[in-house]
Amino acid sequence: MIVEGDLTPGERLDETVLAKRFSVSRTPVREALKALVATGLAEVKPRQGTTVSTLSIPTLIEMFELMSALEGLCARLAARRATGEETHAMHAVHARLIEAYERNDPEAFYAINAEFHDLLYAAAHTHFLASQTIALRLAPYRRKVTYLPDRMRDTLKEHATILAAIEDGNSERAQQAASEHVRLLGDHLSDFISTIPPELLT
Rank of each mutant, 00 (worst) to 15 (best):
G84N: 11
H188C: 10
A130V: 11
A135P: 02
V182N: 04
R183P: 13
F128K: 09
L129R: 06
E172L: 11
H94W: 07
R142T: 08
A178Q: 01
A92S: 12
I112S: 01
K144D: 02
P106L: 11
K157R: 13
L119G: 01
L185E: 14
I61F: 07
N113T: 05
L97E: 00
I134Q: 09
P140W: 02
A79S: 08
Y110A: 08
S131T: 15
A124L: 07
A100V: 06
H94R: 11
E107N: 08
E65Q: 14
G72T: 01
A178E: 02
I61N: 07
H127E: 15
M152T: 13
Q176C: 00
A135F: 03
M152V: 09
Q132V: 15
L148I: 09
P197L: 09
E172G: 05
D154K: 14
N104P: 01
T146N: 10
I193V: 15
E102I: 07
A123R: 06
L120C: 06
E71H: 13
A135E: 11
E65D: 14
N104D: 15
L163W: 05
A160N: 07
L60F: 13
G72F: 00
V182T: 15
L73N: 06
A135K: 08
T155F: 13
E86I: 06
L129V: 10
E99L: 10
H88Y: 07
V182H: 07
S171M: 00
D154E: 12
A177I: 08
A139P: 10
M67N: 12
P106C: 07
Q176Y: 03
D105F: 00
L77Y: 08
S190E: 15
L185W: 12
H127M: 12
D150W: 03
E62H: 05
A89Q: 06
Q132D: 09
H88P: 02
Y101H: 15
Y110L: 03
A100S: 11
P149L: 15
E172N: 11
A114I: 04
L97G: 03
G169H: 09
T161N: 10
A174V: 04
M152N: 10
A78V: 05
G72D: 00
S194L: 08
D118T: 06
A79L: 04
H188P: 01
T195C: 04
L77E: 10
A139M: 07
L73F: 03
S179W: 03
E102S: 14
F116C: 00
H181P: 02
R81F: 03
A164S: 08
E62G: 03
A75I: 03
L163H: 01
S179K: 09
A164T: 05
A89I: 02
Y147I: 00
T155G: 10
H181W: 04
A165Y: 05
I162T: 04
L119P: 06
L77F: 07
E102Q: 15
H125E: 02
D154N: 13
E71A: 04
